[in-house]
């Protein structure tokens, strides 16, 4: 009796949680960082008129957790990233801080990556750029693409850029990579034959079973998910979404996911960098 009563109450609460996602809310973090959570869609995004942060699609409770750094569990990982940044871990005792005064001096990184690197003649993600410094400038073995050191460092670099507008370049030498990512976005992968667009462009705002679909924007990454109680890298999320279409997924760090990340990032040009954000 009590058990089933409890179950019913819990379900009602969960259902209410989904229903009360406040898509008209405004996001101000710590009472001072004003985030742009909705903006006119950039011209290169044909399927949307307005772009919206994933924060808007979360329940009131989840939204609130991201509004104060004392509540946001993602900030713990930012602190861990800061420690690594200052630690003399290089083969010759270098730290990131030996060459980069502080994370604030790297505040333009998160909003503009993935970005064309003229020397390597390829589009680099933040992770690839960090690994370039780790391996070539500190002579360390490379960090695992979605490992703790890397995700914590990307959280630190995102937090240094919070509130700045995403502004990745899609033209010039990055264009063919961007086109590749765009093609992937509209490809119906797997045995369920679902594209990113089927869920995140055609159906944002709708529920799919228990999940309230957002636009699948990446301005909030890395994201702290209440579901797995850890910080999640953007390409881990891509991997999960493709796997859920009963498809063979791609690996984090693969050329395909770099292209997809550039394209998805560009769909959020104009939204604020929010990482580390909080999601369910």
């Amino acid at each position: 009796m009590t058990a089933s009563l409890y179950g019913a109450v819990l379900l009602a609460a969960l259902a209410a949680g989904a229903a009360y996602a406040d898509e008209d809310a405004d996001l101000v973090v710590n009472g001072e960082i004003e985030m742009t959570v909705r903006a006119p869609a950039p011209d290169h995004v044909e399927g949307l008129s307005e772009i919206m942060s994933g924060w808007l699609f979360r329940s009131d409770e989840t939204q609130a957790v991201q509004m104060d750094d004392f509540d946001n569990p993602g900030m713990i990982f930012v602190d861990a990233g800061r420690e690594t940044f200052n630690a003399e871990i290089g083969a010759d005792g270098e730290s990131c801080a030996s060459c980069h005064e502080g994370p604030e001096t790297l505040a333009d990184v998160r909003p503009t990556y993935p970005k064309w690197d003229p020397e390597r003649e390829t589009v680099q993600t933040v992770e690839m750029q960090v690994n370039e410094c780790v391996t070539e400038r500190m002579n360390l073995p490379e960090w695992k693409y979605t490992g703790d050191d890397m995700v914590n460092m990307t959280a630190l670099l995102a937090s240094a850029a919070r509130g700045k507008p995403v502004d990745v370049a899609i033209d010039g030498p990055a264009q063919s990579t961007w086109e590749q990512g765009k093609e992937m976005y509209y490809t119906r992968y797997g045995q369920l034959e679902l594209s990113c667009a089927n869920c995140h462009e055609d159906n944002y705002g709708n529920n799919i079973r228990a999940d309230h679909l957002s636009q699948g924007q990446i301005n909030g990454f890395p994201t702290y998910r209440l579901k797995n109680a850890k910080l999640n890298a953007v390409q881990s999320r891509f991997k999960g979404c493709i796997r859920d279409t009963r498809a063979e997924t791609f690996s984090p760090g693969s050329a395909e996911f770099v292209a997809l990340e550039l394209y998805v990032a560009s769909r959020g040009n104009g939204l604020s960098v929010e990482g580390p954000s909080v999601r369910n």
Partner: peptide
């Protein structure tokens, strides 16, 4: 958008169920 439930070919990168790995053998 509705999936095709009784079909076993014509897919892009079909997986081995929900493992994320490539499908093995005939689907």
């Amino acid at each position: 958008i509705m999936p095709s439930f009784y079909k076993n070919s014509g897919y892009v990168r079909p997986g081995d169920g929900y493992t994320g790995d490539a499908a093995k053998g005939e689907l």
